[in-house]
Every structure is written in C-alpha cells, then in structure tokens.
Simulated assay, not measured.
Amino acid sequence: MARKIVDEPSEEIVANAKQERAEKRNPLGRVALFIRQVIAELKKVVTPTRKELLSFTAVVLVFVVIMMAIVSGLDAVFGFLTIMVFGDGNIAGG
C-alpha cells in the first residue's frame, strides 16, 4: 500500500510568512519589507562581461540597421505607389 506524502512548509517559511504578515500591518514595516526585497533581487543581478556587452551591443546595432533598411524600403515603395496612383501634384495643362 502506498504511503501518502504530505508536503508541509518548513518552519522557516512559516516564520518568515508570519513576520512579513506582521510587518505588512504598519506602513514602516511595508517599506522595510519592500527595501529588503529590492536588495534581495539586486543581489541576483549578473552583470555581463566586457565581451558579452560588446556582443550584445553589436547584435542590437545590426538589428536596428536591418529594421531601418526594411522601413526605408517600404517607405520608398509606398511613396512610389502613391505618386503613381495620385500623381505628383502638378496640374496638367495649366
């Protein structure tokens, strides 16, 4: 017969939750909790190396140049089609 395994939170998690709940009651506690969470998230940030940074920058610049070429090409095509359909604005015979 299989045993039923119950997943219960550890005492540390329960204690942290109770502390956070108590701190949420007053505005100063909420600010302190927010600052602690911000610091904890900032500790997770990994800064890229110089090589990675240059690589990422090159990728972004190449992408921007490609997008500029596409948009410029489409602008030229649509501009040409507009002139073909509506004319260049000169009044003929006048």
Rank of each mutant, 00 (worst) to 15 (best):
residue 76 A to N: 10
residue 57 T to D: 04
residue 20 E to A: 14
residue 9 P to G: 02
residue 16 N to I: 05
residue 4 K to E: 00
residue 67 M to C: 10
residue 45 V to I: 11
residue 64 V to G: 02
residue 5 I to L: 10
residue 37 Q to H: 08
residue 40 A to K: 15
residue 29 G to V: 01
residue 3 R to A: 13
residue 9 P to R: 15
residue 6 V to W: 00
residue 89 G to A: 06
residue 39 I to G: 13
residue 69 A to W: 11
residue 44 K to W: 00
residue 67 M to L: 12
residue 88 D to Y: 05
residue 29 G to H: 00
residue 65 V to D: 14
residue 76 A to T: 11
residue 25 R to Y: 03
residue 74 L to Q: 12
residue 33 L to Q: 14
residue 11 E to C: 01
residue 9 P to C: 03
residue 47 T to R: 12
residue 87 G to H: 07
residue 83 I to C: 01
residue 77 V to W: 07
residue 39 I to M: 15
residue 25 R to M: 07
residue 16 N to F: 06
residue 88 D to I: 13
residue 80 F to C: 01
residue 26 N to H: 01
residue 43 K to T: 13
residue 1 M to R: 14
residue 35 I to M: 14
residue 32 A to C: 12
residue 21 R to A: 15
residue 73 G to E: 05
residue 68 M to P: 00
residue 47 T to V: 02
residue 63 F to C: 03
residue 82 T to K: 09
residue 42 L to G: 12
residue 62 V to T: 09
residue 16 N to W: 06
residue 56 F to R: 10
residue 44 K to A: 00
residue 59 V to K: 09
residue 12 E to M: 02
residue 59 V to T: 05
residue 37 Q to K: 14
residue 51 K to I: 05
residue 13 I to V: 12
residue 74 L to R: 09
residue 77 V to G: 01
residue 20 E to I: 13
residue 34 F to R: 10
residue 50 R to S: 05
residue 6 V to L: 06
residue 26 N to E: 00
residue 71 V to I: 12
residue 80 F to Y: 12
residue 15 A to V: 07
residue 16 N to G: 01
residue 74 L to M: 09
residue 58 A to H: 05
residue 19 Q to F: 10
residue 39 I to S: 15
residue 38 V to N: 07
residue 1 M to A: 12
residue 42 L to F: 15
residue 34 F to W: 10
residue 76 A to M: 09
residue 19 Q to L: 10
residue 4 K to Y: 11
residue 42 L to A: 12
residue 70 I to K: 11
residue 84 M to T: 01
residue 13 I to F: 10
residue 39 I to H: 12
residue 54 L to F: 13
residue 9 P to Y: 11
residue 58 A to F: 04
residue 73 G to C: 06
residue 24 K to W: 02
residue 57 T to I: 00
residue 7 D to A: 11
residue 11 E to H: 01
residue 54 L to I: 03
residue 56 F to G: 01
residue 48 P to M: 00
residue 15 A to E: 10
residue 70 I to L: 15
residue 87 G to V: 06
residue 21 R to G: 11
residue 36 R to N: 14
